[in-house]
Write a protein that binds this DNA or RNA. Structure first.
Length: 945
RNA sequence: GCGCAUGUGGCGUAAUUGGUAGCCGCGCUAGACUUAGGAUCUAGUGUUGAAAGACGUGGGGGUUCGAGUCCCUUCAUGCGCACCA
């Protein structure tokens, strides 16, 4: 007796692979490289569910395949182990995050190992490991010591900035200030001025240019989590982790100047083989819009002006008022005495609205008149200045020129407050809506009259430039990324404060390791938890020290904020290339060889977070000469989420009666209850199990059945404990085996589609693998009897069809269709009663990327010395599948009329000759003349008469 | 509102890119072997029809000898962004 015992087979080969380091990437190597990267997981406390490995299985198939065709494959894995959940858990339980994280990582590793991935674990990284975050801190210092030079369009060492300031002064930089923090009266300063500035003033000015900088800005503050969040970590006004409300707050915060890279991040997209949806999300997030800024002088105060931004300079003559954001710096000073009370009230209400309230009440129109007027720069007409919260302080200049005839929001504002609406395009109706279309001929517009929209834009911009009333400008929606977190469980920011001035920690003193503390919540005075550490002081060349022992003017207190979760994940793919290096984040040689990921697989939820930050850091590192390439990954695939199937039963409201799905009454109200999906077979609930599951609820309930069955509804939802629909891959591995799990996850549907998990369908895949086993092994005596004869024509045809198909599938990420092809092949072999050694061993090789364990075992049982994982991929030979001597349908005008037997190796002309010697065919033609004969691949498809 | 996807049997899906729609699997029906089977094997399974055939890829229109595939339009679903001037 020898049945397919997946448990022992899988354990055996997993141990073999680990022991012999079969999947270790070579370096150095003379082979061509291929880098298959997965998004590394955050090791959460609930472990993996069957949705997590989907992308890993796909990438593993590619990695194994690429090894077979001769590449030196880098296929690593690691853990994104800093993050909020472990810390929240620490706050609640006092359990140190290191402990929870360690435990979770062990569990993840166990679960991953069971699935039989070909990861090179010798290169594993953990972002919370100090040997790793030493280099995250090193990169931070690099970013801190760099600035984006607008002249060269790249990041440079901060020394080049200082050199320019020393020699040319502010005007040598060639740009506006990058943040609004330099006191305006300082600008522009000369090189002489600069040389006379005090150290602290110089530092404050330089801070405005650093790529990692400390600055005052509106940030997303989450009071519940006690920390600042980046824009992508906020969804609809709530924190992505935990769903707590988020407010806008002005704070002095560490940020990353990603805005400097807006244009390069946008333009770099076109060369990437990424999916359109991801590229579009990033484009959307970066949000480039071209237009111009315009200056409006203020009536009675000709020395003062308001700058507005518009993308429609052609509508300049349609301006009937200006609107400024409530937070706009001029809001107060523009208000006349008579309007003072009203405006102040309005501004206060607007400021105190949370982000959430502002977003939900988008339809509400509110605003108030400041009492002041601006002067139209061309017509010199007086234009009232209003305050309105539909104008955002963070975008453009925080002020707009309102053209209600051609902008819907301005239109609604104008209607609401009964302000004039001036159309400047011919045939514009302003009864119901603004005319936002960028087409038509200008009217009421002085020198623009008669031009079309695009001509008018050009003409308007020319006029604006010549008369110096504004300038062309490009605006981005992208905001600088908040980088500091008022949290414990993250990389310490390697900055200390000497006399209140931030100073970088010396490179040789890295890493600054997390201090031991026992309470992880903020201090009583609201300081981040790191402020609790007694020795959170730094001295150059000495490292951490306790100020009580070492009071020394050379040192200072360390920064108490830590880095956000995305810091460690923005560069981990480079660390894999040389994971053990203690001298550099990775050696030049390793970086030059591995370059970048050739394939990156992960969830699309990281489109505007991780994937944007990674591209940003990669570009900075490239600019500064530390990397050979500008993008982290050439090709990116987003696997679709596997949803859980939730089981829902119905309880009559107010009674303890459970009613079967279709036995429900229309006039009764029911409460829908989620029950454990494991209690359900098909859509029938096992009532006895249900009673055992939650005796308190279901033991004494009354049941209304249909056909003596309790039927539930099934719904696809995100897998979560809350809905009792989580399927654990361990359970699947125990029952069916890892190979079945791998094949089934691929078989479920296209990799990139979201799809619900349905455990029933797995039986088919499981049967298939049992069939494969029986094809090789005689189960009654355990022998393997394969014949050594020359394979026959039909078997070879099946095999080569399969070689072609599987190779094409893997190259094109069409994994689901491979499984069907394997099944067809096995059925054909059974039909042909084929037990040919050559054919079947090639089949094993083709199946091995998908189901590696069973293939290794059968390959071994066949007596092969070499392991299947290092065998060469079979080569497709078209001679085996060329069809010949076959009945082909002949269609006339699209209708099938007859079948003719002919040899496909014939030339088109010869086929035509055969056709015309066929009497039946001549009959059908019935004297009509043939217009055209349509051939596809030497096969007649249609005849047009 | 803007952008990006996706619509094919009872269900998950296939159709290598414009060439015989429905491969493979689940489910279902019948049968075989069984004391029994939630094991295994065989046959059937888009709709309609006794059959020949006809009709069929969300709806409508178009291009083509030929459309699931291309174009226009419309509806539905999912995702992303959203008072971005």
């Amino acid at each position: 007796m020898r049945n397919y015992d997946h448990n022992s087979i899988e354990r055996k080969w997993q141990e073999y692979w680990a022991k012999h380091q079969v999947f270790k990437a070579e370096f150095p190597s003379s082979k061509p490289k291929f880098y298959v990267l997965d998004m590394f997981p955050y090791p959460s406390g609930s472990g993996l569910h069957v949705g997590h490995p989907l992308g890993y299985i796909a990438s593993d198939i590619v990695a194994r395949y690429k090894r077979h065709i001769g590449y030196n494959v880098l296929h690593p894995m690691g853990y994104d182990s800093f993050g909020l959940p472990a810390e929240q858990y620490a706050i609640q339980t006092g359990q140190h995050p290191i402990k929870t994280t360690k435990k979770n990582i062990l569990r993840y590793r166990e679960q991953l190992d069971r699935i039989g991935f070909s990861f090179d674990w010798s290169r594993a990284v953990q972002t919370s490991d100090s040997s790793y975050y030493k280099w995250t801190q090193w990169i931070f210092l690099l970013l801190y010591n760099s600035w984006y030079n607008p002249r060269t369009q790249k990041a440079e060492n901060i020394e080049t900035l200082i050199y320019i300031l020393e020699n040319e002064g502010f005007n040598g930089i060639g740009c506006d200030i990058l943040t609004g923090d330099i006191e305006e009266e300082l600008l522009p300063f000369s090189s002489k001025d600069w040389q006379h500035f005090e150290y602290s003033k110089k530092q404050a000015i330089i801070m405005n240019f650093r790529i990692a900088y400390l600055g005052e800005a509106f940030v997303n503050w989450c009071p519940e989590l006690g920390t600042v969040l980046a824009n992508d970590e906020v969804k609809n006004g709530f924190s992505e982790r935990g769903g707590h409300p988020v407010e806008r707050k002005k704070m002095n915060q560490w940020s990353m100047r990603i805005t400097a890279y807006a244009n390069r991040l946008l333009e770099g997209l076109s060369d990437l083989g990424w999916r359109n949806s991801i590229k579009e999300s990033q484009k959307n997030w970066i949000g480039k819009s071209e237009g111009c800024s315009l200056y409006f002088k203020i009536k009675g105060q000709p020395e003062r002006q308001i700058e507005v931004f518009t993308t429609r300079p052609d509508t300049l003559f349609g301006v009937s008022f200006l609107t400024i954001a409530p937070e706009h710096e001029l809001a107060k000073s523009l208000t006349t005495n008579s309007r003072k009370q009203e405006v102040e009230e309005y501004v206060n209400i607007a400021k105190n609205r949370t982000e959430r309230e502002r977003m939900t009440n988008v339809a509400d129109i509110s605003g108030t008149f400041t009492g002041s007027y601006a002067i139209h720069p061309i017509t010199n007409k007086e234009i009232p200045i209003w305050v309105g919260d539909y104008v955002l302080v963070g975008y453009g200049t925080g002020a707009v020129m309102a053209v209600p005839a051609h902008d819907q929001r301005d239109y609604e504002f104008a209607k609401f407050f009964d302000l004039p609406i001036l159309p400047v395009l011919e045939n514009t109706s302003i009864d119901k809506n603004a005319n936002e279309a960028k087409e038509g001929i200008l009217c009421n517009s002085d020198f623009l009259d008669g031009l079309n929209v695009y001509q008018a834009m050009t003409a308007a911009i020319d006029y604006i430039k010549i008369n110096n009333i504004g300038k062309p400008k490009i605006n981005f929606k992208l905001r600088d990324a908040a980088f500091g977190r008022q949290r414990y469980w993250g990389e310490p920011i390697p900055i200390y404060y000497k006399n209140g001035i931030p100073e970088p920690v010396l490179e040789k003193d890295l890493p600054i390791t997390l201090p031991e503390i026992s309470i992880f919540s903020p201090t009583e005075s609201g300081e981040p938890p790191l402020a609790r550490a007694p020795n959170w002081y730094y001295m150059p060349n000495k490292g951490l020290c306790n100020p009580a022992d070492d009071i020394n003017l050379e040192g200072g207190m360390l920064e108490t904020s830590t880095m956000p979760g995305w810091a460690g994940s923005s560069w981990y793919f480079f660390r894999y290339m040389d994971a053990e290096n203690s001298k550099e984040f990775a050696s030049k040689d390793a970086l030059n060889y591995w370059q970048q990921a050739d394939l990156y697989i992960g969830g699309s939820e990281h489109a505007t977070g991780h994937l944007l930050y990674s591209r940003f850091w990669t570009k900075v590192l490239y600019d500064l000469g530390h990397l050979p390439c500008q993008e982290p990954a050439k090709n990116l695939i987003n696997q679709g989420m596997i949803q859980g199937l939730s089981a829902i039963i119905y309880r009559t409201e107010g009674e303890n009666t459970i009613v079967s799905k279709d036995a429900r009454d229309k006039n009764t109200n029911y409460t829908a209850l989620h029950i454990d999906i494991n209690l359900v077979q098909g859509n029938e609930v096992d009532i006895e199990q249900l009673k055992n599951w939650r005796p308190a609820d279901f033991e004494n309930a009354t049941y209304v059945l249909e056909n003596e069955k309790l039927i539930c509804s099934l719904e696809a939802e995100k897998m979560s404990k809350r809905w009792h629909n989580v399927v654990n891959p361990d359970d699947i591995c125990n029952t069916y085996g890892a190979d079945t799990l791998r094949l089934y996850e691929m078989f479920l549907g296209p990799l990139e589609e979201p799809k619900p998990w349905n455990t029933q369908g797995i039986e088919g895949v499981s049967r298939f693998l049992k069939k494969v086993w029986r094809l090789f092994v005689n189960e009654s005596d355990g022998t393997v009897n394969l014949e050594n004869l020359q394979p026959d024509q039909l078997a070879n045809k099946s095999l080569h069809k399969l070689i072609k198909k599987i190779t094409w599938d893997i190259e094109n990420f069409s994994f689901n269709t491979s499984v069907a092809a394997y099944m067809v092949f096995i059925n054909e072999m059974n039909e042909l009663k084929c037990r040919n050694k050559e054919i079947l061993s090639t089949f094993l090789l083709l199946l091995s990327p998908y189901a590696p364990h069973i293939c290794e075992e059968l390959w071994d049982l066949m007596g092969n010395q070499e392991r299947i994982s290092s065998a060469a991929w079979p080569i497709f030979d078209p001679k085996y599948i060329e069809e010949s001597d076959f009945n082909y349908p002949i269609s006339i005008n699209g209708k099938t009329k007859l079948q003719i037997r002919f040899d496909l190796s014939l030339k088109q002309q010869e086929i035509e000759e055969i056709l015309f010697s066929n009497k039946e065919f001549i009959n059908i033609l019935d004297g009509k003349t043939i217009k055209r004969v349509i051939f596809v691949k030497a096969k007649i498809i249609n005849i047009v008469v």
